[in-house]
Simulated scan of single mutants.
Amino acid sequence: MAMNKLLLILTAASIITILHRTAALPAETLTNAADTLSNSGYVAMSLTLNLVSDVLLSHHNSATVFTPPDSSFSDYGQPSLTILQLHFSPMAFSLQSIRSLPYGTKIPTVDSGTFLTVTTRSPSDQISINDVKIVGSPIFDDGSLIVFGIESFFDPNFTVPDPPVPTARLDHCTASFADNSNFSFHDSANVLISRGYSVMASFLNLQLLGFITQPTLTVFAPSDEVMVDYSGRFPDYQSLFHRHVLPCKVSWRDLINIDDGTSFDTYLEGFEIKINRSGGSFKVNEVPITFPDMYYSDWIVIHGIREIVSLPKPVDEAIDGDGDGDPFDDTPASTSGRELIASGPDRSEF
Rank of each mutant, 00 (worst) to 15 (best):
I300Y: 02
E317M: 00
V315D: 10
H303Y: 06
V309D: 02
P314F: 00
V315I: 12
L311K: 08
F291I: 15
L311T: 09
V301T: 13
Y295I: 02
M294A: 11
V315A: 12
Y295E: 03
W299N: 14
V301N: 06
D298V: 13
E317L: 05
K313V: 02
I308Y: 00
A318M: 10
I302F: 05
F291T: 15
D316S: 09
I300V: 14
G304N: 03
S310D: 01
I300Q: 07
H303R: 03
I305F: 06
E317C: 04
M294S: 11
D320W: 00
I302A: 01
D293L: 11
P292K: 10
P312V: 03
F291R: 14
K313L: 14
V315E: 11
D298T: 15
Y296W: 09
L311C: 03
M294P: 12
P314N: 02
M294Y: 15
V315G: 02
V301C: 00
D320L: 14
S297I: 05
V315W: 06
P314G: 02
S297L: 10
Y296P: 04
I305C: 01
I319F: 11
S310K: 10
P312Y: 03
M294T: 11
E307S: 14
Y295K: 09
V301Y: 01
V309S: 07
S310H: 05
E307Q: 14
Y296G: 05
I319M: 07
G304D: 02
H303E: 01
I300L: 15
P312L: 05
D293Y: 09
E317P: 00
D320S: 14
A318D: 05
K313C: 03
I305T: 02
K313H: 11
V301W: 03
H303P: 00
T290F: 06
V315R: 12
G304W: 02
K313Y: 03
P292N: 08
W299V: 09
P314C: 01
P312G: 08
D320Y: 01
P314L: 09
D316T: 07
Y296Q: 14
M294L: 15
V301R: 12
V309P: 00
D320I: 13
D320P: 00
R306F: 05
I300M: 13
I300F: 08
P312A: 07
K313I: 02
I305R: 01
T290C: 04
P314A: 08
I308P: 07
I300H: 07
I319V: 15
S297A: 12
P292Q: 08
S310T: 13
Y296L: 10
M294E: 14
I308M: 09
P312I: 01
V309K: 09
S310L: 04
A318I: 03
